[in-house]
Design a protein around this nucleic acid. Structure first.
Lengths: 187, 187
DNA sequence: TACCGGTCGTTCAAATTGGAACATCCAGTT
DNA sequence: AACTGGATGTTCCAATTTGAACGACCGGTA
């Protein structure tokens, strides 16, 4: 084994900036979400993920994977959110093991109230400090790093949604309310 | 208040990559540290910070600030690490409120054993996926973001180290053993 | 000297986390 | 049909984290 490839100054700066910025940012976000909506960061993320998932629902495992959280942790949080009436559990007839977390209307409403402030804060604290090139570098570089860590070779089709939500009240596959897109025309 | 400046696609990618990469990376790092050295991520950071602090010591508040952790959390961890004999507390005569966390020899030795693998992992999972330009963008962009969040206007002198460690065994201000620097000559 | 606003580190209770053990279930094999 | 290797989600429990409350202390001021 070689003698450890230490980080050069630039890399040290990058690493330090990366961890530091994340910690600072996440802390601020959590505080505000908690103060304004009684939500933890994880809970907001859960709402958000479910919010723009196909039928506002995702399997526990998928959700846990997407959030990079432990299964048990998710079980706990979904439990909490269920008590609050933001989320509901649904089991799938075709696969008895599966459990779907479904976003309730109350949860969706909450998400819609919380999202603007959240996005605004992220923009203010992060994107307002970045040049367009830096944004691209983040997206590309960290995107690639993330991809490598998840082990995504050839885009093996997800196969999810075997057990589609069928008969249920009225709403079927409404469009995702929070996915507006505001062109902010690049030069 | 304007109608929320939502994120464009590129920004969404960047944000998602940022949080995702961080979560993935941190999780891996924690697992390895725990497995190989029985250390948590936070504990490693504490060792590292103390390791290249002036006299291998830092005030509790400084440390907490640098780590972006709560005071109480740090109190707890330092307590744990003290039990393990990696760290020691020292109080300062000139300011009775202050408490310094001092890195013990055992802690330093542990740090020196853990650092290579840690750095190697960071390089492998993060830097190997980044181009030099991307590294620079991270360092600059996130550095700036972090600076803004900490509120660092005119580099107000830290004033720290009022109560310098004086009489103590032998070692005074030895050079920081872990701060080797390996030129990795840019083209 | 006595007082005051502010800082420091610790304590406390309550909430969260994460891994291991567990019971169930699915798909492919024998 | 019985068996096996792998997933799934939950439960359990110990470790950790958080913010608020607290007591001690500092520096400047009346």
């Amino acid at each position: 084994m070689g003698h450890t490839r230490w980080l050069n100054e630039e890399e040290k700066r990058a690493w330090s900036a990366f961890t530091n910025a994340h910690a600072l940012l996440y802390r601020r976000i959590e505080q505000r979400l908690k103060r304004d909506f009684g939500l933890s960061g994880l809970q907001y993320e859960i709402l958000a993920r479910l919010g723009d998932a196909p039928n506002r629902e995702l399997r526990m495992a998928e959700l846990a994977g997407a959030l990079v959280n432990s299964k048990s942790g998710l079980t706990y949080q979904i439990g909490q959110m269920e008590k609050s009436g933001w989320v509901r559990r649904r089991s799938c007839p075709s696969d008895e093991r599966a459990v779907y977390a479904v976003l309730d209307d109350a949860g969706m409403a909450l998400l819609e109230r919380a999202a603007p402030g959240h996005v605004e804060l992220v923009r203010e604290l992060l994107f307002d400090a970045l040049s367009p090139e830096q944004v691209r570098a983040l997206a590309d570089g960290l995107g690639e790093a993330g991809r490598r860590m998840t082990g995504v070779p050839g885009e093996a089709d997800p196969v999810r949604g075997d057990c589609a939500a069928s008969a249920e009240g009225g709403v079927a596959a409404a469009d995702h309310p929070l996915s507006r897109r505001e062109h902010q025309g690049p030069p």
